[in-house]
């Protein structure tokens, strides 16, 4: 059983090339997705702050 796993990891002696390729692809794609979602959250936050800001200003104006 272990031999099968080891053989799988060794990849016929080309582990050094195959695994990095898959890792880079995974990191690249997931990273792109992750950063896009984070950017979306960030922009949503900015929008929320801005809305609050504007509503406060209009209220101040009403008081004046």
């Amino acid at each position: 059983m272990i031999e099968v796993v080891v053989e799988f990891i060794i990849m016929g002696g080309h582990a050094y090339y195959i695994w990095p390729a898959y890792i880079i692809a995974t990191v690249g794609i997931l990273g792109l997705w992750f950063f896009s979602i984070r950017e979306l959250k960030y922009q949503k936050q900015i929008l929320a702050n801005l809305k609050e800001d504007i509503s406060q200003k209009t209220q101040q104006r009403k008081c004046n």
Partner: peptide, 21 residues
């Protein structure tokens, strides 16, 4: 497609924020 949709949303938000500013 997922990332594209997310990024379009980001750009739409950015545009909206810019207009609001």
């Amino acid at each position: 497609v997922c990332v594209l949709v997310t990024r379009i949303k980001v750009l739409l938000l950015k545009r909206r924020i810019r207009l609001m500013r």
